[in-house]
Write a protein that binds this DNA or RNA. Sequence first.
RNA 1: CGGGGUGUAGCGCAGAUGGUAGCGCGCUUGCUUCGGGAGCAAGAGGCCAGGAGUUCGACUCUCCUCACUCCGACCA
Length: 479
Amino acid sequence: MADQKKMVEDITSMDVDFAKWYTDICKKAELVEYTSVKGCMVIRPYGYAIWENIQRILDGYFKETGHENVCMPMFIPESLLQKEKDHVEGFAPEVAWVTHGGNDLLEERLCVRPTSETLFCEHFANIVHSHRDLPKLYNQWVSVVRWEKTTRPFLRSREFLWQEGHTVHATAEEAIAETEQMLNIYADFYEKDLAIPVVRGQKTESDKFAGAESTYCIEALMHDGKALQAATSHYFGDGFAKAFGIQFQSKENKLEYVHETSWGLTTRTIGAIIMTHGDDNGLVLPPAVAPIQVVIIPVAQHKEGVLEKANELKAQLSKSFRVKLDDSENSPGWKYSEYEMKGVPVRLEIGPRDIEANQCVLVTRHNREKTVVSLDNLPDAISQKLQEVRDGLWEKAIANRDKKTYKCTSIDEIKAALAENGDGLVMAMWCGDEACEDKVKEETGVGSRCIPFNQENLDDKCVCCGKPAKHMVMWGNAY
RNA sequence: CGGGGUGUAGCGCAGAUGGUAGCGCGCUUGCUUCGGGAGCAAGAGGCCAGGAGUUCGACUCUCCUCACUCCGACCA
């Protein structure tokens, strides 16, 4: 035992090299594998199972709030994409084009959807005629393609999975309410289900979605102090409606344009989970989306009765939880490390001594605490442990965010805070002028992430120019 | 897209001045083990990223391409 090996081999420590640590986790926890197409990765069964859980939960929230799923084509004719000027300008640099069908050159090239506003608009124009047709609350779970220059698993791939919601409404008020509702659904999902704290806010003019009137977002802080846009929700006003001719007859028999929204969340969420909760032993998954919530490790499984008991527990617990029993020939120690690497929230150890005493050992992943519990009322004990993991993750994430949130009233203060404590979220006042936004980024390296809904008056003056401040802005270095 | 780094067995790496490839882990089989990555024994596994040169001969030298990766710029 004295020359016991490192618990987990080949994971770079997160404090040594966070980026390397991240890719190590992605590969060693068997979430992704690279392919021969740059920037396009295989999401492996364990990684995809996380996504399936994310989908299942979110889709439930969408349905509860009256949304329906649809599926649009993956190709957009160039002429359709070009109907909204800002939109096409925003996306043109990163779209992939299909130019041939078989051996024949297409008359009009087709873009592989980078997002589907234009397709939805074309469709809405066809099906919306009367105020009785409104609202239309649609969503789709698909993949989109953006030809990114540099790529990273989950955080930036050329093809990624997401859901994009698209809705049209009779009034601006209704559309704005929808935008806010969806942002709150995302925020609750992140905070309650994923145990990732987020800041809700609005993007500045320069940072909003191409073609949107206003863009809202939730921003999360990763363990290394960088910010990550976790989800967005856009209000389009009637801009797209006018470009695409989406009109309806109102009760007053007037022809009016619809008001539109869109909102999305991507597989990047898996990256957020990894970078918020993971540690040097591997992944740590919030119970709500963990493909395996409880892993049962039989100890001395060759001995009489051990596997039988383990199977019995598995059958019992599978009624309430996602359970795996690992009865492979690997040693118990190997299994402990393996499932820690994979982030399984609760481990259940059962051996001859336990069976004799009618007990088992439960170990929570985030703190590796071991508890001996009775086999009576085991489901209750597990429920409690899963809740402990979720709450433990939340507290850890909140503590990290508090530690890395800096309130500053001058450029020098920003520089000093970042130099002293490393990357983090900088809260500072802003006059609303884009020149100041750019200058802060230039001088301190942190860009504006959003204007948080939760405003605090840190100062009367803009952190940059000293003129009267309009908002507190959250600044940060982002993924 | 700009600047670095790396491509040799599934993974991590070694291969001085050119001579046809090795180590650890993993994998397979057998036996012994089993409460924090077990031990012994016998095995399997390589177009040295790809292409073009130089050379009697290239993993090794030259050029080109590609991929991965890190740091910037940009983005979900």
